[in-house]
Structures are given as structure tokens and as C-alpha cells.
């Protein structure tokens, strides 16, 4: 069958299956695994394609931005979802708290993923790591090292840019600050950050890099991999060239990290293949791909860090339990509201 007619027939099949309702008790013929994910297809599809090529297990995907946990919950025992692959510890925690997951015991996973990056009971495992770091203008910020606390220092007044404070990348960082410093000090810090804003929080991390390169601000917060992605993009390299990445630290000398990870669905029909996919994703080859394509840090100890990302310096990942960060997500969100972070620099 030619490739094109394959597309057409699969489309017709889908349309037919959909035009009526879907048959619930379809015993799956070929090996497959159904993944619900918050990770953009462009980042994760190459990994799935490689996995399918090597194992013959087909990966079916839906990507969404929010609400997949609620969908799995609503689908109940009928849910086709075998696993949820998501970014952000708070999302992993939410899935577990909603009772839509099951614990996974796997020697391969336990050997590959360090204990700090997985739930003790096997409810979730991390697949990759990213750090939230400082983007600084190469020509205007000369500091060799800066801490998270330094970002609130008055010397950066009117020079700091960041995306919406309620975005989960920021919310997790603010939650980590609460875990480290307690609420009172974290709130002071957040007020300081707000006072330093050059403009209203907006755009994405790439826009922060653009704002710095264009001179709208000198310093900002962003995830590590965006700098890698921009550097690899011919149209955006000119922007990332003007950015220097500084690994900021808390008092313990370590940098805030978050993860992408997975849970296996409670009613997974293809649990064995889901675990197989997960084990493959923490294997040396896939972990290398996370670095080469997505510019993320591997979870697998000893797996190489992508050279450009490595040039930022060695990552000393914060070792406070990620679950405690997830536990402060709500407080962090309320605090962001309270200090009026998103209202921008002027009150």
C-alpha cells in the first residue's frame, strides 16, 4: 500500500469509527500504546517514531495544553489512555492525587532514574530535566555568578523581564523559593522581582531572550532548553548569541530544576507496552535524543549533556524534594496574586 493511500484509509477508518461511536471492547491487534501528553508533538514525536521503528510498538498520541487529567478521570475504566507524559511536577502530582494512575515497579526505571527524580512508590518517574536560569545581556551584565536572591536586588530595577508569573515554569520556581526561604522571605523576594520588572510579564521564554537582545531589559528568567533551541534555529541564532546563561543558585548552591515525566494510567489496557516505552525513554539512546533535539538534561546518570547546554556550566540540580515544590504550587500562585506580580512594574 502506498503511503498516501495508507493515510487516506486510516483517515476514513477514523472518520467511520468516529461518525458512529467507537467500539469499546476492541481487542487491540498490533502492539500499541496510547499516550496523552502536554509535550509538544515536535519535541516528542521523533522519540516515539524511533521507539516504533525499533520495537514495532505503535504510539498513538493526543497533545493538549490542559485538562488531560480530567479527561482520563471522566473516561474512567473505558479510557484508552495508557500513560500521561507531562512537563512540570505539579501536573504529575495532580494526576496522582486525582487517582487516575497506578504505581509502576521496574528495575530498569529504578536503576536509570535517581530517587530524587521519581516517586518512592513508583507513582511517577521523571524523563528529562530542565533548569530555570538567568538570561543576561552579554554586553551589559558582567557578573560571573548570580543567585536567585540577586534578581530582586535594586541594582536591576527596571531591567528584569519574565513571562507571566502564573505560568507553571514560574509558579514552580516561586514554589521552590517558598520551600527554601519560607513564605515571608519568598514574598519579599517576589515583591523585589516585581519592582525590578522592565515591562509587564508577557510572551514566552523566547520573548524574554528577544527583549534582552533588543535592549528592552538586561536580565530575565527562562528555561535552559530555549537557548539551545534558538541557537539551533538559523532565524533566531542572532538573538541567542546576545544572551549569556547564568546558573543561579539558592543558598545551598544549587539551581532550581523541573522535570518532564510520566505516569501510567490506572486503567491502562497496554500497561506492559507503556512500561516498555518508559524504559526505552530512559535508555541511553533516548536520553541522548532528549539532549540533541530538545536541549534538555538527561535523567540517566552518566548520559552526556548536549555540548551547547554543557557550555552554560555544570548543572548542580536543587535536591529539595520535587514533591515539596508541587505542594507549594497553590501558595505560590496566591502569592503571585497578592504581590500583583502580573500587573507589571508600576502599581
Amino acid at each position: 500500500m502506498s503511503k498516501n493511500s495508507g493515510h487516506l484509509s486510516s483517515f476514513i477508518r477514523r472518520a467511520l469509527a468516529g461518525a458512529a461511536l467507537s467500539i469499546a471492547a476492541s481487542g487491540s491487534m498490533a502492539a500499541e500504546v496510547n499516550v496523552y501528553t502536554y509535550r509538544e508533538p515536535g519535541l516528542i514525536k521523533p522519540l516515539f517514531d524511533k521507539f516504533t521503528a525499533e520495537t514495532g510498538v505503535k504510539v498513538n498520541v493526543i497533545f493538549a495544553k490542559a485538562g488531560l487529567e480530567e479527561r482520563i478521570q471522566s473516561e474512567g475504566a473505558n479510557s484508552p489512555a495508557d500513560m500521561l507524559i507531562t512537563t512540570d511536577i505539579a501536573n504529575l502530582r495532580k494526576a496522582v492525587d486525582l487517582g487516575i494512575t497506578q504505581n509502576v515497579k521496574s528495575v530498569t526505571l529504578e536503576k536509570a532514574v535517581p530517587p530524587a527524580l521519581r516517586a518512592a512508590d513508583g507513582a511517577w518517574y521523571a524523563l528529562s530535566v530542565r533548569a530555570r536560569v538567568i538570561y543576561a545581556a552579554k554586553d551589559r551584565v558582567k557578573d560571573a555568578a548570580l543567585s536567585y536572591a540577586d534578581l530582586a536586588s535594586p541594582r536591576f530595577k527596571g531591567k528584569f523581564c519574565v513571562r507571566d508569573g502564573r505560568h507553571n515554569y514560574n509558579n514552580a520556581l516561586f514554589a521552590a523559593a517558598i520551600v527554601h526561604w519560607g513564605e515571608a522571605k519568598a514574598e519579599e523576594w517576589l515583591k523585589g522581582l516585581r519592582a525590578n520588572l522592565a515591562k509587564k510579564p508577557s510572551g514566552g521564554d523566547r520573548d524574554v531572550a528577544k527583549d534582552i537582545a533588543s535592549g528592552a531589559c538586561d536580565i530575565g528568567l527562562g528555561n535552559t532548553y530555549y537557548v539551545g533551541l534558538m541557537n539551533a534555529d538559523a532565524q533566531q541564532k542572532a538573538i541567542s548569541d546576545q544572551i549569556r546563561v547564568i546558573m543561579p543558585t539558592f543558598e545551598n548552591g544549587k539551581t532550581h530544576v523541573n522535570v518532564s515525566g510520566f505516569v501510567v494510567a490506572k486503567h491502562a489496557k497496554n500497561k506492559a507496552d507503556a512500561v516498555k516505552l518508559a524504559e526505552w525513554l530512559v535508555g541511553a539512546q533516548a536520553q541522548g535524543m532528549y539532549g540533541e533535539q530538545n536541549f534538555e538534561y538527561p535523567v540517566l546518570a552518566g548520559a552526556p549533556v548536549e555540548p551547547f547546554i554543557k557550555s552554560f556550566g555544570d548543572l548542580k540540580a536543587d535536591d529539595i524534594p520535587l514533591e515539596s515544590v508541587a505542594g507549594k504550587a497553590k501558595t505560590a500562585s496566591e502569592m503571585t496574586d497578592k504581590v500583583g506580580f502580573n500587573l507589571g512594574p508600576q502599581s
Partner: peptide, 12 residues
């Protein structure tokens, strides 16, 4: 009936 609505083209 061996049918489900959730997650189908019909539901969407």
C-alpha cells in the same frame, strides 16, 4: 451496547 462516546469524533 459495546459503544463509548468519550474520546470520539462524535463527542468532539
Amino acid at each position: 451496547l459495546p459503544l463509548i462516546l468519550s474520546g470520539t469524533f462524535a463527542a468532539m
